[in-house]
Design a protein around this nucleic acid. Structure first.
Lengths: 153, 153
DNA sequence: AATAAAAATGTAATCATTACAATTTTTATT
DNA sequence: AATAAAAATTGTAATGATTACATTTTTATT
């Protein structure tokens, strides 16, 4: 099940992958990786920065970008372009989709199998990446909205 | 069939919609709309600007953004966030997906029905928008690559 | 400890987009 | 047609995410 993988397992598998690619397990890189494993809410580079800044004040944003690019390059992390001008990062690379709530801003994971989609039409194409996302209002926000309605009117 | 609609039909339906929403059919707005109807290759705001600048040199980028926002607001145009930090605009609002070639940069339309996807899991959610995109290399670029291989090696 | 390679840093630059105040155009009313 | 109000458009400056790059720090190897 997506998201149910214990953090340590994902983290240790990632470090193994880094070793395999001869990428050093520097403290900074591991911090970024750790952050991605802990925060599965698809953080932006800036959110990772803010998050780690408490712990490692000298960590620069450039290092975060560098590390994220490295992780994306070797396929350990995927980018999400749901919102314009805001790249989000997802350590869960297994086949799934997303739902972005336009009220609370949360990005939900959606269990969905994308491998089989559009196989025929794209038969001559080389597919590297499949992305499905929905936009709308999540259940919780819909309920809140109705609650507020009752109060206001 | 997607993309097979004659430009004039789509354009005139769009102007009707604008009227219906009490949005003036100014020359500038119509130029942007016309450009979107002619260029179905999912242009960016800048590409629209460059394209129209030849014809209407005094047209500002702000007006293009303003118009695009208006068109998106009333549902005549959809935004595409395939690439990071680059919003593309699509006048074809009918249900379909996209394929972005990472070699030539072209965005292909993919006939695919998205309405029925993830209905169950998102049953309590209000879905405004569904987006599916693929990344990879298109057929033509794959063939070119192989051609080059033969020459080089 | 000396050296070379890799990693990390801070600053400045870039690029898309937005904010906003000023100007021009259009519309409705007289 | 004159006028006032509303809407549209403009240019400039600001913002915010990301990248470029030169410099410094860390690490691995001798």
């Amino acid at each position: 099940m997506i998201g149910c993988d214990p953090m340590n397992s994902r983290y240790s598998r990632a470090t193994q992958q880094l070793k395999k690619h001869n990428i050093r397990l520097s403290n900074r890189r591991l911090k970024v990786l750790e952050c991605l494993c802990n925060k599965l809410d698809h953080p932006t580079a800036d959110q990772i920065f803010v998050n780690l800044h408490k712990e490692v004040p000298s960590l620069s944003k450039t290092t975060i970008y560098n590390t994220l690019h490295t992780l994306v390059e070797i396929g350990l992390v995927r980018t999400l372009n749901i919102e314009a001008n805001k790249t989000r990062y997802d350590i869960i690379t297994e086949d799934h989709g997303h739902f972005g709530c336009q009220t609370c801003g949360r990005i939900f994971n959606v269990n969905i199998e994308l491998e089989s989609l559009a196989k025929g039409e794209l038969s001559g194409f080389n597919i590297w990446e499949r992305n499905l996302y929905f936009k709308g209002i999540c259940q919780k926000c819909l309920l809140n909205k109705n609650k507020n309605r009752e109060v206001v009117y």
